[in-house]
């Protein structure tokens, strides 16, 4: 190879590995804004209650706005069937082994789902607190669910997830008496990572606190169109 060295050239790049995805995400977000479609990227650990929270949210809001759901999973269509049973348009995306969704996959999902006339769409990301935080999906807002059994120290362990989330739902507050979960410490830990975060304690199962979350969504839909 020594004789070919002259043909090599060193090119300075200085770009984040996420550069291409970040640009696609910004383009998608601009399009969503011009269409007035408010897309919420919902992230959490597996088992924190994403699907139950979505079902509860859909029950409360489906009479006042048109809702769609994109479910992402490594495999299976369990979540899409569950959500479709709540009476909204739903599509299941398979990430093919990948642990997150990126902007390209989100766009494909939106294109395969008829989003004409939809006011609010949820993107149920893969259950994972690491990769989904790194890949901008192009959604209007990021929401995450932290459930009580996971512990109040999660914001310290997965700081990026809490930094990128506009709203943090603290779910399963009905079981607080059984766990060593300190709500004040949890708030402090979240706000240390992200002073702008809105924090909403709720219980998707009993419905407690769901009103505040639905109001956050209504305000979001309205502001997105403005």
């Amino acid at each position: 190879m020594a004789g070919k060295t002259d043909e090599f050239k060193v090119i300075e790049v200085k770009r984040s590995v996420f550069d291409a995805n970040d640009r696609q995400a910004d383009e998608l977000r601009d399009e969503l804004r011009s269409r007035g479609l408010f897309l919420v990227n919902l992230m959490s650990s597996p088992g924190s209650g994403k699907t139950t929270t979505l079902r509860r949210t859909i029950e409360r809001l489906r009479d006042e706005m048109s809702i769609a759901v994109l479910e992402a999973d490594i495999d299976s269509d369990v979540d899409a069937r569950t959500v479709a049973a709540a009476g909204v348009r739903a599509i299941q995306l398979h990430t093919g082994g990948m642990c997150h969704l990126d902007a390209g996959m989100t766009r494909q999902g939106l294109e395969s789902l008829d989003t004409e006339g939809i006011d609010l769409a949820f993107l149920e990301n893969v259950g994972n607190l690491v990769c989904p935080a790194e890949f901008d999906t192009g959604a209007s807002r990021n929401a995450m669910i932290l459930s009580v059994p996971e512990g109040d120290d999660k914001p310290l362990k997965y700081p990026l997830m809490f930094e990128v989330s506009d709203v943090v739902l603290i779910n399963k507050i009905d079981v607080m008496p059984y766990f060593d979960f300190d709500m004040d410490a949890c708030r402090t830990n979240i706000l240390a990572r992200n002073p702008e975060a809105t924090i909403i304690p709720l219980c998707a199962k009993t419905g407690e606190g769901v009103d505040a979350w639905c109001q956050w969504l209504r305000d979001g839909v309205e502001a997105w169109r403005a």
Partner: peptide, 8 residues
């Protein structure tokens, strides 16, 4: 971050 590449 991608700092640089060697290309032909």
């Amino acid at each position: 971050e991608i700092l640089e590449v060697v290309a032909t």
